[in-house]
Amino acid sequence: MNDVIAIIPARSGSKSIPDKNIALLAGYPLIAFSIIAAKLSKKIQRVIVSTDSSEYAEIARSYGAETPFIRPKEYARDESTDRAFLLHAINWFEENEAKCPEYWVHLRPTTPLRVPSLIDQAVEALMDCQQATSLRSAHKAPESPLKWFSKSEDGFFNGLMPKTFGVEGFNLPKEQFEDIFIPDGYIDVIKKSHILNSQSIHGRNILAFESPVCSEVDSKEEFEYIEFQIQKHGSEILEYLKANY
């Protein structure tokens, strides 16, 4: 059996959208989409929600997740890091369970539109790459940021790329730039052995996983856009929710 667990962080107290992680998307709490994505994965055995809220925990359990602990408030502040809640969860398992899984699939509720089979592909990729310290997803940027500008204090734009042979870098065709990838919340896979023996989450050898372009909920407008995407393209996860909840 694979040594894989999903962890979904869902702290309360969002400022951009009140109670964002349980806000209704197409009639279901936002967190439910990540829980079901993990449940539909063939590689993940258990789905854990790390939350500081008993209300959120009850909702998570109603969709099939486990909430074996309530996250302490010091790990659920605006300035709290991902490493803090991950370490708390891993240490809890080390102290309270017979076995602590090696592979932790980090699924953010704010990226609700996933394809479960891609989660499995990502987990397999990390398992097959012994030198990798973690895996992160990212999608291809539409153009290189080297074509962008900074702005000086006196109001003038400056190209980020130095001139090459007298040519302004921001005017070069995009085909002359290497592909750049934007990190997203589609999937991270963390190794317990790495995070417990270092001061980082991902380490130096982050295995690249190219995800589909995906939208993330950080504002009301983005939430509305994701609702539009579901209405237009549908969702495997939404269909499962409709059929089972």
Rank of each mutant, 00 (worst) to 15 (best):
C129R: 15
A38F: 15
A57S: 15
E74P: 00
A98C: 05
S80A: 13
A84P: 06
Q121Y: 05
Y56I: 13
E95H: 09
T111R: 00
S14C: 05
M161D: 01
I206D: 00
A208G: 05
S144P: 03
A6V: 11
F170M: 01
E55H: 11
T81W: 07
R136H: 06
K43V: 00
A138H: 08
A98Y: 11
M127S: 03
E124Q: 15
Q231T: 10
E95N: 14
A32P: 07
E94W: 00
K39N: 14
H88R: 09
E124A: 13
I226S: 08
D218H: 09
R77Q: 12
S117E: 11
P112C: 05
D120L: 05
L196Y: 05
V105W: 03
I48F: 14
T111G: 11
N21V: 14
P109E: 12
V49A: 04
C100S: 15
I230S: 06
Q131E: 13
I237S: 06
D78G: 04
N21F: 12
I180A: 07
R77Y: 03
L40D: 09
I180T: 13
E221L: 10
I226K: 12
S200P: 00
A84I: 03
G185T: 00
A208P: 14
V189W: 00
I119F: 12
F149N: 01
I7K: 14
I190Q: 02
C100W: 02
I31Y: 08
K147P: 00
V189C: 06
D154P: 01
G155D: 05
K174I: 04
K99H: 12
P72W: 06
K42D: 09
N21D: 11
K43T: 15
K99G: 01
P162R: 09
L87G: 03
N244K: 15
D188S: 15
Q229I: 04
F181N: 01
S152E: 08
E178W: 01
Q199I: 15
I22M: 05
A60W: 13
N197K: 10
L24W: 14
L160N: 07
S117K: 12
L207T: 06
E227T: 05
I35M: 10
A208D: 11
A122G: 10
I48W: 02
F33V: 10
S117N: 08
N158A: 01
L126C: 02
P162L: 09
I35P: 06
I206L: 05
A76S: 15
E74W: 03
D188V: 00
I31L: 15
T133R: 02
I59G: 09
S150A: 13
K39G: 08
R108L: 04
K151T: 13
S50G: 13
G166P: 03
E236K: 06
K140Q: 13
Y245A: 11
K174C: 01
